[in-house]
Computed example of a mutant assay.
Amino acid sequence: MSAFFSSLRPALRMANAPQAARAFSSSPAHSIARLTLTGRLGAEPELHATSSGQEIVKYNIATSHGPRDNRQTSWWRITNFVPEGSQRDFILGLQKGTLLYVEGDAKMANWEDSEGQTRSALNVVQRTLEVLKRPDNGGHSDESH
């Protein structure tokens, strides 16, 4: 276990170091809101088209926190502006319950609904997606043979 902690020491030293420059990034210095989520897929991802005809994939992730007897769940709506081909098919093929690691850019959107009420929503646009664990199907495939 000590090897684990010794491997963290350089990262911990960097975390406590003053942040005077953004030498690690080639992007322009501007404000961004980045979210990192680890949670379960709430339903199979869905393919949608924007008003301009661009295909996007939307899905929901559930994250939970707190003690077992008082667990709180938050639902996050994720949008992915997916390229054509295998990446799109991979995401669309994910099953409900899949444990995912997602990094995304977050932005608040405000609008007025048909009744004149101001509404807001947090939009998360996926940057990174990683499958951590697929749901256990008891050794059976969902496909019939």
Rank of each mutant, 00 (worst) to 15 (best):
V125C: 03
L99M: 06
F5H: 07
A43H: 04
A43M: 10
H30Y: 14
R134M: 13
L8C: 13
T38I: 09
P18N: 15
R34P: 00
I91S: 11
A43S: 11
E46Q: 14
R68P: 06
H30K: 14
Q126V: 03
E130I: 03
I56R: 13
G97K: 07
S7R: 08
P28K: 15
G116N: 05
G66H: 04
R119M: 15
L41I: 08
H48G: 04
Y59C: 03
S31Q: 14
E55F: 04
I91M: 12
K96Q: 12
S6D: 12
Q126F: 00
S64I: 11
Q72Y: 07
R88Y: 06
T63P: 00
Q117V: 03
E46F: 04
S52Q: 14
A17Q: 12
S141L: 14
S86P: 02
Q19C: 01
D69E: 15
N123V: 12
G139Y: 01
P67A: 10
R134L: 12
F81P: 15
S26T: 00
R9N: 08
S74Q: 01
E112Q: 11
N70Q: 13
L100C: 10
A11L: 14
A20E: 09
I61M: 02
A33R: 09
A33N: 09
D89A: 10
G139E: 03
P18D: 10
V57Y: 09
S144K: 14
S25N: 08
K96D: 06
Q54T: 02
L129Q: 15
L132C: 11
L47T: 03
A49M: 05
H30C: 02
E112P: 05
Y59S: 01
G139M: 04
P67R: 15
W111A: 05
S2W: 06
S144T: 12
A109Y: 03
N80P: 02
Q87Y: 06
K58S: 06
F5K: 14
H65M: 13
E115F: 15
R77Y: 07
T38C: 01
N70E: 14
R13F: 12
S6W: 04
G53T: 09
E44C: 09
A21Y: 01
V57M: 13
E103R: 14
G97F: 08
G42P: 03
H30N: 05
R119V: 05
Q117M: 12
I32E: 15
T98L: 07
G138R: 00
M14C: 09
V102G: 02
S141V: 00
F5Q: 12
E143C: 07
Q54V: 01
G116P: 07
R71L: 11
A15H: 06
N110H: 06
I61T: 02
R127L: 00
D113R: 06
V102I: 13
E130M: 01
N70H: 10
A49I: 00
R77P: 01
S51D: 09
L99Y: 11
A43C: 09
T118H: 10
G116D: 11
L122T: 15
M14N: 09
K58M: 05
S51C: 04
R134V: 01
Q117G: 05
W111T: 04
R88K: 10
Q95I: 01
A43N: 03
N60V: 15
S25E: 14
A43V: 09
T79N: 08
F4Y: 04
A43T: 06
V124Q: 03
G116W: 15
E55T: 00
L47A: 08
N80T: 04
A20L: 12
H140E: 13
Q72P: 02
T118A: 13
E46S: 04
V82E: 15
L47H: 10
